[in-house]
Simulated assay, not measured.
Amino acid sequence: MNIGSYFRLEGVLVAGAVSLYVQARNGALWEVGLLKNVGHLLQSNVVVEGIRTGAEVIAVNWIEANGPPQRTLSSAAM
């Protein structure tokens, strides 16, 4: 996919120190920036569509939940 092309991505929405990211199924971490009103989607499977603006960076036009939330296991529970 070239920079400037419309892109669709599926993965888990995670919070970083300065931005939000989608961790794709292949393990890649895509930066999606700071989005408003998506706190309820954190740690959930999502579908994101937008314009690719850099190496693993998307300017999001649309984000939606994609299936049930993914459970995360803490290392203390293991």
Results as ranks from 00 to 15, higher is better:
Leu13Gln: 01
Ala59Arg: 13
Gly11Arg: 06
Val12Arg: 05
Val47Arg: 14
Asn61His: 11
Ser44Glu: 10
His40Asn: 12
Asn45Ser: 14
Leu29Tyr: 07
Glu49Cys: 15
Gly54Leu: 04
Glu10Ala: 12
Leu13Phe: 03
Gln43Val: 12
Glu64Tyr: 15
Ala17Ser: 13
Val60Cys: 06
Asn45Cys: 10
Glu31Asn: 14
Val18Gln: 03
Val47Phe: 07
Leu20Val: 05
Leu42His: 07
Gly27Met: 04
Leu13Tyr: 04
Glu10Ile: 08
Gly39Val: 08
Gly27Arg: 06
Glu56Thr: 09
Val47Glu: 09
Val38Gln: 03
Glu56Ala: 11
His40Lys: 09
His40Thr: 12
Leu20Glu: 01
Ser19Glu: 05
His40Tyr: 14
Tyr21Lys: 07
Gly50Ala: 12
Asn26Ile: 02
Gln23Thr: 14
Leu20Ile: 03
Val38Leu: 05
Trp62Ser: 14
Ala59Pro: 00
Glu64Leu: 14
Ala59Cys: 07
Gly50Tyr: 13
Asn37Lys: 14
Tyr21Thr: 04
Ala28Ser: 11
Glu31Trp: 00
Thr53Pro: 06
Glu56Cys: 02
Val46His: 09
Trp62Glu: 12
Glu31Cys: 03
Ala24Arg: 10
Val60Lys: 07
Leu9Tyr: 09
Ala28Pro: 01
Ile58Gly: 03
Val47Gly: 08
Val14Pro: 02
Leu29Thr: 09
Gly27Ser: 06
Ile58Ser: 04
Ala15Gln: 15
Ala24Gly: 05
Trp30Ser: 01
Asn37Pro: 07
Leu29Ser: 08
Ser19Met: 01
Val46Asp: 03
Gly16Val: 11
